[in-house]
Design a binder for these strands. Structure first.
Length: 349
DNA sequence: AAGACGGGGTT
DNA sequence: AACCCAGTCTT
């Protein structure tokens, strides 16, 4: 593209944005806090899904001080149903960090934002360009598609050299004024016109500048994402009820994953488990899986499973109140005995 | 570079 | 079931 066509592109796109943009709750303010919260919620999450959560969240936590002062559990409760709960933990931790290190200010300073948990290059650019009109690029699901088609790039913008290219391209097209609006306009175009399948090129304000449109390559650019290799993980979960409590299984806890719990509202016997309860040892057999549960304390019991593969599981006893307050929504009556995220294949007990 | 995030919604 | 979504972090 020539410098002239770059200018035409920016002008036409911004004019279209002024005309066609949706009224969204986070477009009513330049408050960096409100923009930040929206960007975190919008990660891998559709606009329609976010809106009610966003409005509720800001009523409870209207500013970074309110968020930092809240219990993590209160934050997670408001996040329940939105998914990717790590985002909420990071957001909360980052708010506390800003109180500590920046006296609660959300500055026009990329290095401060880059140091916050849960803030990557996208959120940094999105917040600073919208709140302060700072000249920083963004790349996300919409813009990588718009840019690839605009320049007719055959690279896969999601990885390797294509990823480098698309960030470069995002920087190249950036105007010097109205940077925040421009970044929003790129995403809005991707969401409303330059869609993944069957884009509305006849309605596109920048079709004259678009290489893909010129050559009719909209359907082939960007190339489809690499198919994920299917791997089947063998997992076995377990629940045992005793004295009004429920034993929930979890995968091996890691620093990142923490303790995610499963509920299983049935007795072991009802699902074909053999249970032997001794004074210090509980043995459970189900299929090829055998748990040996060491009873270490009356309030908490850890278990170790013996598997064909080399991972284990562990569990804790929870009260009904603790269970109810846990922020993860779990389908009642469903538990995956064998489960694979990538293949989404599982067998339900 | 690859995978988790035990997400959620649409087609 | 496949595909998509205003990504980030860990390994």
């Amino acid at each position: 593209m020539t410098p002239e066509s770059h200018r035409a592109f920016r002008r036409k796109l911004l004019a279209w944005f002024d005309r066609a943009k949706r009224d969204l709750p986070w477009r009513t303010s330049r408050d960096p806090y409100r923009i930040w919260v929206s960007e975190v919620m919008l990660q891998q999450t559709t606009v329609a899904a976010v809106i009610p959560f966003y409005e509720r969240f800001l009523v409870s936590f209207p500013n970074v001080h309110a968020l930092a002062a809240a219990d993590e559990q209160a934050v997670l409760n408001l996040w329940q149903g939105l998914g990717y709960y790590r985002r909420a933990r990071h957001l909360h931790a980052a708010a506390k960090q800003l109180i500590h290190e920046q006296a609660g200010e959300l500055p026009n300073d990329p290095s401060v934002w880059a140091a916050l948990p849960g803030v990557g290059r996208y959120i940094l650019g999105a917040v600073l360009s919208q709140a302060f009109d700072r000249r920083l690029p963004i790349v996300e699901a919409n813009t990588l598609r718009v840019l690839s088609r605009l320049f007719g790039s055959r690279l896969d913008p999601r990885e390797g050299a294509g990823k480098v290219w698309v960030w470069e391209a995002a920087e190249t097209v950036l105007p010097h004024k109205r940077v925040g609006d421009f970044n929003q306009a790129m995403m809005e175009l991707g969401a409303l016109v330059c869609t993944p399948v069957a884009p509305n090129c006849e309605l596109c304000p920048v079709r004259r500048e678009c290489v893909a449109n010129q050559f009719g390559l909209q359907a082939e650019i960007p190339p489809p994402a690499k198919k994920k290799v299917l791997t089947t993980a063998q997992e076995t979960a377990l629940l045992i009820q005793r004295e009004g409590r429920v034993l929930l299984c979890q995968r091996p806890p890691t620093a990142e994953r923490g303790a995610m719990l499963w509920e299983f509202p049935a007795t072991a016997e009802s699902v074909g488990m053999t249970v032997e309860l001794g004074p210090e040892l509980l043995t459970v057999q189900h299929g090829v899986t055998r748990f040996r549960i060491v009873l270490e304390a009356s309030e908490a019991v850890w278990l170790r499973g013996e598997f064909a593969s080399d991972f284990y599981t562990a569990g804790v006893w929870l009260t009904a109140e603790e269970l109810a307050s846990y922020p993860m929504s779990i389908p009642q009556g469903k538990l995956r005995a064998e489960w694979s995220k990538t293949s989404r294949q599982g067998r339900l007990w």
